[in-house]
Simulated assay, not measured.
Amino acid sequence: MGPVLADSVRLTDDGVEILDRRVFPAERVWVHCASVEDVAKAIEDMVTQSSGPYFAALWGMVLAAREARSLAAEDARAHLAKAGERLIATRRTNNHLRKAVAAALSGVDGQTGDDLAAAVLAGARAGDERYRSRSAALGRHTAELLPDKATVLTHCWADLYLVELVRAAAGKDLAFVCTETRPYLQGARLTAETLAEMGVDTTVITDGMGAAVLSSGRVDALVTAADRVTMDGHVVNKIGTLGLAVAAHAFDVPFHAMVQAPDRLAPTAADVPIEYRDGTEVLNRPGIRGLYPAFDITPPRFVTTVVTDRGPFSPRQLGSYYEEIP
């Protein structure tokens, strides 16, 4: 059995079940989504985050194919296209949603009825397997960069990347320091809970403590996931990553950003839309505004390594990732 959050989105006979990460681990509540719109709303409302939306989109497209079983080929294609657009639009900074939709539709070629549903299900299952295998490779490559008994500072919730890193580093006796990651506290609730579940030495700090901890000499590496990495080496990740990366750079602590692959559709940081969420998620008080950019962008000069499923790369040499890929 793996950690709970490694399997938090499930396809059922009558919908998609999503573990509500907004209340985990205090409660284990599964949100039932009976339609594509239900799945999209769950993603928008932060029922699931990190890689969760990828899996939700995979299985959401299966629901769309089930809905289209009674439609003629042209109408079925239009229904799937609309469903894919709706899911991709839920959170545009991370490109996982686009990849999930493409994976689910990869075997669609004019089928209708049950054949269409079967084709989309096969594509979604292949997308699920591919994401997990690439995450495992990413974890192995990242583990190789860390010394034995390393103390690792991490931010937000790196999901399967973190799970696979811990598995790959078995025997290295790693310890982790997790930032709380306001306002949803993914670090304090999701990262810390999963690390503890896997038997890892885990410490939680507030977001404002990161620079001081990095200055202490007790941290061997800053390791985070990346929602997207541009071809020129900018790392887009949960808000707060930039500040930690700058502090790590100042105190000679390497920053390793984990991503399955750099995004060829994002040559530069200007090509990545940054999601701004409602400021009331930060502060809800009359007469005072809250500001919530959900992501920030770390320039390559503050990034030591971009670790991919094909190994580590300098942020300035990411083009070589695709040299052997047509």
Rank of each mutant, 00 (worst) to 15 (best):
K82M: 13
A76S: 12
F55D: 00
E74Q: 07
R77Q: 11
R69L: 10
L63K: 05
A57T: 12
D75R: 06
D75C: 10
G52M: 11
L80Y: 10
L63A: 04
A73E: 15
R77N: 15
H79G: 08
L71I: 10
A78Q: 10
A73P: 12
H79R: 06
S51R: 12
A64K: 00
A73G: 06
A76W: 07
V62R: 00
A73V: 08
R69K: 08
A76L: 15
R69W: 10
S70K: 05
P53V: 09
R66H: 08
A68N: 06
A65Q: 04
R66N: 15
H79W: 13
R77T: 03
L63N: 02
A76E: 02
V62D: 01
A73C: 10
A72N: 15
P53R: 13
K82V: 09
A65W: 00
E74K: 12
G60S: 07
P53G: 09
R66A: 05
M61G: 11
M61I: 07
L71H: 14
R77V: 03
A83Y: 01
A83M: 03
Y54F: 11
S51V: 15
R66S: 08
E74R: 12
A64L: 04
A73D: 11
S70M: 12
G52I: 02
D75H: 13
L58T: 02
P53C: 08
A68L: 05
R69S: 07
R66P: 10
A81E: 04
S70I: 04
H79A: 09
S51M: 15
V62S: 02
L63C: 05
A56V: 08
A64C: 09
W59T: 08
P53L: 13
R77K: 13
G60F: 02
A57N: 04
R66Y: 15
